[in-house]
Amino acid sequence: MLSIRFHGRGGQGAKTASRIVGTAAFLEGFTAQDSPIYGAERRGAPVAAFTRIAKKPIRERGLIARPDLVVVADASLIGDPSARVLDGVDERTVLFVNSPLTPDQLRARTSVSGRLTVLDLTDLALKQFGKRGAISALLGAVAGRLAGLRPESIREAIVRELTDLGLTAPVIERNQALAMQCFEAVQPVTLEPGPRAPVPSAQLRTPTYDPPTRGTAGITAGPNSAIRSVSGWRTFRPVLRPDLCNGCWLCFASCPEGAITIKPDGKPAVYYPHCKGCLDCVEVCPTDAMTVEREPEGANK
């Protein structure tokens, strides 16, 4: 059995990528299983998805604890402990990271080591489509290539899954074409599936009774989410061009994170530590005063 774990941010297309690989494998006659896991829906929050491919019925379910391949849609996830990108990764696991950096640069700047292959899907998508969007087809094609699936089945799987999402034929064709470029461009690394060394027995621990002040789900520390930065979630950042801004405050009203404040001159200002990069403010801006810049890798921490 081949186990592929996808990590992305809500909205990037990790779930659809897992389905593209699942469908492609299924079309080639394998048994496939795919599933996503996410919390309360929040764009930009870490999500994971899992695809299993086998020749026999699959008895595993749910999260993949020891992946053969990890596909990382956004390099900023590597440094986010809640994303658990490196959980269960061993010397046999292959990592694909969507990043402009080289494997060596990534190894130097992040905690990844071992077997790594890299391609800047975000840049390809920007150049080809001229705007930011989900990169599910590209991720799916790369993962499919690394998993040894055939280009025809991946092309067909992309059509099926993107059609399922309600995308139009021209959009699907563009995605398909770029996905196949990525399929060719990614540097393949041979996967090494097969049984892993047995894990030891779990170290169980039964918690003891705590007083209700501690043993009840609740928060008493006050609003400390204010000191948590979500800067690392951004692939793109909104940047204001004050000369174009008409002061309508639509961006202020639509920011889901409350990251935009209004200055005394009536113009908005983005507080970047609380900006997750969803770009809703850019979408609503009637004068294109909110512009988009790609975050340089590693600079937005």
């Binding site: 779990a202 621990r205 918690p207 501690r214 006050g222 400390n224």
Partner: peptide, 23 residues
């Protein structure tokens, strides 16, 4: 109870955030 030492350490970290960490 199927609950591990490692999970309990994470739980304690959460409790620190919920009850002790001040703004």
């Amino acid at each position: 109870l199927l609950y591990t030492e490692a999970e309990h350490r994470e739980m304690q970290q959460m409790q620190y955030l919920a009850h002790e960490l001040k703004t």
